[in-house]
């Protein structure tokens, strides 16, 4: 494990893993979408609009999982000051923002036929919106601080402060009376959802997870290469200085 903490070894490992992960993503996403559209039944109340669930719920899970991964990377940055942790943090923020946006947009599209409105200011929706804002703030922080190691430490601190929002999102539907329905898959006493809907949902969740892992690995790889390019450019600028001075 420690061996892959070296960025060069990591690049080699990522290069080998990414094709397999991409293939797994394509397979599971294909299967999931097929099940969603052709196998999963329409809801007796909601009709076919229930199928938005197969996008909405996995993106909601991923929006939080991404934050948890980013938090562990932030710990890696603060405790070990490891460049790989910095890259993992930076790569996760835009992905998290995208999954959260996907969750908000699909939720909004689902809410219009179900609740008669695009948006309500209840605890679940609001706390997810706050998560989106935290992701945007992190992206802004990454873009503003030019020195990568300094940006990583600042982002890590903000990430760790923002982690209080994650349990609030998870338990908002239990703590407050909301329009949003309570958890139906991960709850005490087993899932409250019929198997014909549960299976497509789980496969979509697996597909989204593979998608996230693929994109995250690719983004980490890009970030490592971008850092190298930056360092080489600065070195080259200074080396050039010497050669032209002696010429």
């Amino acid at each position: 494990m420690l061996k892959y903490a070296n960025p060069t070894n990591f690049l080699a490992l990522a290069g080998r893993l990414i094709p397999w992960l991409a293939a797994a993503t394509a397979l599971s996403l294909g299967a999931g979408l097929f099940l969603t559209f052709f196998v999963a039944p329409d809801d007796y109340q909601q009709g076919s609009s229930v199928k938005i669930m197969y996008l909405h719920v996995p993106s909601a899970w991923l929006s939080m999982m991404c934050y948890v991964i980013m938090t562990s990377a932030a710990l890696g940055t603060i405790v070990w000051r490891h460049p790989l942790a910095d890259a993992a943090q930076k790569a996760a923020a835009p992905l998290g923002a995208i999954f959260t946006l996907l969750c908000l947009v699909t939720g909004s599209l689902w809410g219009k036929p179900m609740w008669g409105t695009w948006w309500v200011w209840d605890a679940r929706l609001t706390s997810v919106l706050v998560l989106f804002l935290i992701y945007l703030g992190l992206i802004g922080l990454w873009q503003t601080i030019e020195e990568p190691a300094q940006a990583a430490r600042a982002a890590a601190i903000l990430t760790l402060v923002g982690v209080v929002n994650i349990p609030i999102i998870k338990f908002s539907v239990d703590w407050w009376n909301t329009l949003h329905q309570p958890a139906s898959v991960f709850k005490i006493g087993g899932p409250a959802i019929s198997g014909s809907m549960l299976w497509p949902l789980l496969i979509m969740a697996v597909a989204f997870t593979f998608l996230f892992l693929t994109l995250h690995l690719m983004a980490i790889r890009n970030e490592i290469l971008r850092r190298r390019l930056r360092r080489l450019s600065i070195d080259a600028a200074h080396a050039e200085e010497k050669s032209e001075a002696t010429a």
Binding site: E146, R230, S233, I234, A237, E240, E244
Partner: peptide, 18 residues
């Protein structure tokens, strides 16, 4: 001024003298 090769570098990468 001896900086031809650095023409396409962002100024942020240059030293104070450059």
């Amino acid at each position: 001024v001896g900086l031809k090769r650095l023409a396409d570098f962002p100024v942020a990468y240059l030293s104070a003298g450059q």
